[in-house]
């Protein structure tokens, strides 16, 4: 099993509902976020293109944050989800330095925090909070090794990209283009 997410950049309208849903669901402190919207504008007027991306932790298969963690607080659980055990984290910041996506932050309580793919919801058979609320249904989540999962079906007939593949981290967020 390998959890992954596909984000349809052609359907996303950048409403930030996923951001708010995550903050509410996961009790993210004020001023912080585990997912965010990137608006990439390219070209020169009048030929301008916009790409909207809902970004979060890529739950990389070759995760540099897990490798550099000196205490083992950052670890990978079933389904390839990268998690942080709060009371093993010393707040050294190594994993924050190691992430090419800047997906981690230092929680005001001291430990490092990040997207968990809503593991607590998955265990109950529910979907992640961001996927649940997306009004344009541009987020697809599931087991990428199952050919009939939502994420596999979304990737099937579309072109897609991952962010900074040259970083060698094998990220698990797929952006449909």
């Amino acid at each position: 099993m390998r959890y992954a997410m596909a984000i349809d950049t052609r359907k996303c309208v950048g409403c930030s509902d996923c951001v708010v849903a995550c903050q509410t669901e996961n009790n993210v402190p004020h001023g912080y976020c585990r997912d965010w919207i990137v608006e990439n504008v390219s070209g020169a007027y009048p030929i301008v293109e916009v790409e909207l991306r809902s970004e979060r932790c890529n739950h990389c298969e070759n995760s540099p944050c897990v490798r550099c963690c000196p205490t083992g607080a950052s670890h990978i659980v079933e389904g390839g989800i990268v998690m942080v055990t709060h009371d093993e984290c010393i707040g050294c910041g190594a994993c924050i330095q190691s992430c090419p996506y800047d997906a981690r932050y230092s929680h005001p309580d001291g430990y490092v925090d990040k997207c968990t793919f809503c593991q607590h919801r998955l265990q109950k058979g529910q979907n992640t909070a961001c996927v649940e609320v997306c009004p344009t249904k541009c987020l697809h989540f599931g087991d990428i090794e199952d050919p009939y999962s939502d994420v596999s079906l979304a990737l099937k007939n579309r072109t897609w990209k991952v962010l900074a593949p040259e970083a060698g981290t094998k990220p698990q967020l797929y952006f449909l283009t």
């Binding site: 930030s16 919207i37 390219s42 070209g43 020169a44």
Partner: peptide
């Protein structure tokens, strides 16, 4: 080509 990047809500 000009490219601009906005990160909203962060």
């Amino acid at each position: 080509m000009k490219e601009e990047l906005f990160i909203s809500g962060r």
